[in-house]
Computed example of a mutant assay.
Amino acid sequence: MTSPARPVFDSETRITIPETALTLPALRHPDHAEIERANQHYIRTHLWNLYRSEEEAQNNLRDRHAQWACLANPNGHSERVRYHAYWVSAFFLIDDALSDPNWHGSSTHAADTIVSELVSVLEGDLTAPGSGGGPYKKVAAMVLEPILEGMGPGLRARFLADMRRYIHEYRAEVALRATGKVPDFDTYMAMHTASGCDAVTTLVEYGLQIDLTGAFRAHPALHELKRIVHDNFILVNDLFSFHREHSQGDYTNALSVLVLAEGMQLQDAIDKVCHLIRETETRFIKKSGEMLTSALGADPDIRAYVEEMAYAFSASSQWSYETPRYHNGERGVTRFPSGSATLTRDRITYASAK
């Protein structure tokens, strides 16, 4: 079921963010400063000309994409976490190009062009830098090639399948936005789980230099754990990115969906999303504890993965509340914010952020 898209609020609006009381600790990769410097060089060298303006390019340097990879994979091999960081920066750019209507207007033609370039890479056309192909094809080929070279056949096949789902679901979202509709909440969560979450958690395996392809076939608990982490990724991101996406006319966000398709008031939607965020942590702690104390925990690769997924889980909150991307170009807050805040068209201001 879909509902008409429209602004969720029109002017300055006071909201309250409930206390989430999340307990899983964050950990940053020991080489995070070096990885950040390398990633900033990567953005300047390979992505700069794809941004719409110098200001926009500078903003993406400021947003510190590399810290997402460093928080999500703190025990990963340094070179692999660096490639993960390049992937994050490239796909934030692609995410903006596909999800922000200001990039492609009301027509889906520009989005179709981007999608076709990405699909050609995922079908095996890893175009060498500087050779034929559109700009997004070149960026995708450059960022994916070293990652794919470092994966065994099983992990590589899963990662490529993850990326195909990511592109397919993003294209479906662009098409849905073109209709002026938003989906119901359950449909929205299923779409967003497919649009990137699987690829992120597969990169955790890549960073740890393990391949759990056989284990995923044999143990449903691994899929259950991933789904909990994916739910958290979506909900936390949507809480922090809501004002940014809303200002762009993008209503494929959990808060907008709950208001527009489920009939909630904005404050009730915020309360529900924060409740679900707390609930995902409770579910993760329970499921991971069961896995680590069962026979699965005796497998060193599974144990390493489950323990690293706890950091991937906390990375979602840590990066989202500290990055300038979601804080009006300013340094983010130092803890998960709670209490009163003010929403305007393009920013959120916390009354008591620390």
Results as ranks from 00 to 15, higher is better:
Gly152Cys: 05
Ala33Asn: 02
Ser107Lys: 09
Leu71Pro: 00
Trp103Val: 01
Met151Ser: 04
Ser78Phe: 01
Tyr42Gly: 06
Glu56His: 13
Ala157Tyr: 04
Glu36Asp: 11
Ala90Gln: 02
Pro129Gln: 08
His65Arg: 09
Ile94Tyr: 05
Arg156Ile: 04
Phe91Ile: 09
Ser106Lys: 13
Ala111Gln: 02
Pro135Arg: 14
Val143Thr: 14
Tyr86Thr: 03
Ser107Asn: 09
Gly152Arg: 06
Asp112Ser: 15
Gly132Met: 07
Ala57Trp: 01
Pro129Glu: 04
Met163Lys: 10
Asn39Phe: 01
Met151Asp: 02
Asp112Trp: 05
Tyr51Thr: 07
Arg52Ala: 11
Ala90Leu: 03
Glu55Gly: 14
Pro135Tyr: 12
Arg44Thr: 09
Asp125Ala: 15
Leu148Asn: 07
Thr113Pro: 00
Pro74His: 12
Arg158Tyr: 04
Ala69Pro: 01
Pro146Leu: 10
Ile114Ser: 10
Asn39Met: 03
Asp63Pro: 01
Asp100Met: 04
Ala128Arg: 13
Phe91Tyr: 14
Gly132Ser: 14
Val121Phe: 07
Gly133Ser: 06
Gly134Leu: 03
Arg82Pro: 00
Glu34Leu: 14
Lys137Ala: 13
Asn73Arg: 11
Asp112Pro: 01
Glu117Cys: 12
Ala97Asn: 00
Thr127Gly: 12
Asn49Lys: 13
Leu27Lys: 14
Gly152Leu: 06
Gln58Ala: 14
Glu123Ala: 14
Asn75Ser: 13
Ala33Arg: 13
Glu149Arg: 15
Ile147Thr: 05
His29Cys: 10
Leu126Cys: 07
Ala97Tyr: 00
Asp63Tyr: 14
Glu149Leu: 15
Cys70Glu: 00
Ser53Ile: 04
Met142Leu: 15
Asp100Cys: 07
Asn39Leu: 03
Glu34Tyr: 07
Glu55Arg: 15
Asp96Phe: 09
Ala141Ser: 15
Ser106Val: 06
Pro30Ser: 11
Lys138Ser: 15
Asp100Phe: 09
His46Ala: 13
Phe159Arg: 05
